[in-house]
Design a protein around this nucleic acid. Sequence first.
DNA 1: GGACGTGGGAGACGGATGAGCAACAAGAAC
DNA 2: GTTCTTGTTGCTCATCCGTCTCCCACGTCC
Lengths: 347, 347
Amino acid sequence: MSNKNIGIKDVAVAAGVSVTTVSHVLNEVSYARVSPETRDKVRTIAGQLGYGPNRLAQALRTQRTGMLGLVSEDIATTPHAGRIILGAEEAAKARGYNLMIINTSGSASLESRQADVEALLERRVDGILYATMYHRNVELPANLGSVPSVLVDSVAIGGNITAVVPDEEGGARAAVGALLEAGHTRVGFINNTDDVPATRQRLQAFRSTLTEAGLDGGAAPIESDVSEVQGGYEAARRILGREDPPTGLFCYNDRMAMGAYRAAAELGLTIPADLSVVGFDDQGLIAANLHPGLTTVALPHYEMGAWATEHLIDAVEGKTDLTLMALHPTILSCPLVRRDSVTAPRL
Amino acid sequence: MSNKNIGIKDVAVAAGVSVTTVSHVLNEVSYARVSPETRDKVRTIAGQLGYGPNRLAQALRTQRTGMLGLVSEDIATTPHAGRIILGAEEAAKARGYNLMIINTSGSASLESRQADVEALLERRVDGILYATMYHRNVELPANLGSVPSVLVDSVAIGGNITAVVPDEEGGARAAVGALLEAGHTRVGFINNTDDVPATRQRLQAFRSTLTEAGLDGGAAPIESDVSEVQGGYEAARRILGREDPPTGLFCYNDRMAMGAYRAAAELGLTIPADLSVVGFDDQGLIAANLHPGLTTVALPHYEMGAWATEHLIDAVEGKTDLTLMALHPTILSCPLVRRDSVTAPRL
DNA sequence: GGACGTGGGAGACGGATGAGCAACAAGAAC
DNA sequence: GTTCTTGTTGCTCATCCGTCTCCCACGTCC
């Protein structure tokens, strides 16, 4: 266990060498000429004393803190933020960086978010990760530009900042594909009413996947509602109440799918025998716990956090030029997670 | 927007005073004697230049970083961690502190966790919050003691560290009380099989609340299983399959309650008309989204995070002596959240 | 010549780093 | 064989990073 009152000076004295030499040895400075014996001695003594460098002093001198700022929206509201944080934290730890986290509200004013970034800058973080709660276009505080930054799960309005987002379209195609593959020809979509990229892209992918399969995507049943359980329930009631109702349902997210489960139960429909359902998000608490388990599409939050961190660190260390990547957001795939809510339709 | 290349020296030059004076003014040093005019000038210039102090240099000099370390178990696995983080972050921000977060695994070795703490210590955090995923007894890395520390949602084995935990007993009493109040006399408990404080304390509270109400707590129906949806389902099947089954069910957590919902549905029992259910945890995604909404007991994760941070900062600033509080863990109440799963039993 | 009223100088915090210096060996010049 | 040159090895000195803070300096007015 290290004693934090030990400085490099103490190691130097104990080893009978200068501070410079200790620094050279411990940092393995390439041009330093120190005999193997001295190196050993320094290292041994440093170990015995439990010396660890004062990262503050180090940072002050080297202009590198080894800290990354992460401003995340609504950390506690969704489990998504947790996965982003985890991905970022593990990637950072693997490369010797640490994360400084600031929470902000999705509805916070630009000034407030600017103040958050400012706090990070005062601490001289090497770079900043800016994570939003869901995939959308966001207006960023201007001071974000003063250090390398990466956007997670959103694209900047006027976008000239490197961003990483989920492959909404590919995910939706996989979801619809799972239903088609099982033999469904009457496939419906329960969509969200918010005007966000996910809504538009999933809808478009839904339509074109059907069309490409020889069905009429333009005429497929679609109901929209607020993207919560209740909205899903109501939209499902509507869509299942149509004449010639769909036998396969693609839901905007797992919460809406949960509502669809209830609607189906009330209508005497068994899942998956009478109705196959596919969700989106793979929210652990819902998807795996519904009965039957919900087949859904996973959002790559962990991966986005990790990807963003990796590339941010590359930029900090001069191994990458972020401005080159800023032209188009990077898209990470959304894998289908198969459970038990999809099967062949009744004849 | 502040330019981070501006130092106190630049402000001094621009204002035509010494660095000392700028420091005096900006920090409002009590014993400093500076004329109001000079003060104004310094402040104005600092504002114009967008000066912000370099917190690293400040910290190096004052031996205070204004950073708190938070090591949290399994950030992404449960939403609980998010709430703790949020509580801590907001409390910290309110007092000018920032949070440095490290994730660890609940099953991580003592060495690995010690390394995590070490990383925080090297960064000279002023104090450390150590948060576990659920209420349990935990063996702590020894180096935790080198700075003020507070344990969140757990108690140290050999406990001489200030800790804050939920009031399991009070929560369970409130849950059972809600059922009794509605008129139930046959009340059952679906418990967890893990040997953690929550399991024991909720069981004990369940029994004594019944006994105090004139019922036979010792003979009340209890079934235990793993604390997941499936376990809850199976335990509920067992308990509802008994002769003279309970009309009111207290479940160890919301996930088990979710399983009980399914068991009830399969048995043709309507909630709450035929069966009243109370959960524990108030997991947003489950409790509010089940149908009918689940009456449950909320765990004070946000509050624990905030409480711990408040008191940690007090200790760091010398306003509190943590060792005095270390004798007994602080207990935060678990409020009952009433929804629609409890009503009077059928006659 | 004290007592203000104003303000500045010079470390110190802990570590990184370019320049410099002593000691010694090998080769060159005589 | 001795002395001088040149190079290498091994390590140290002096600074600097940006801020705080103790202590001192100066002018002025009684």
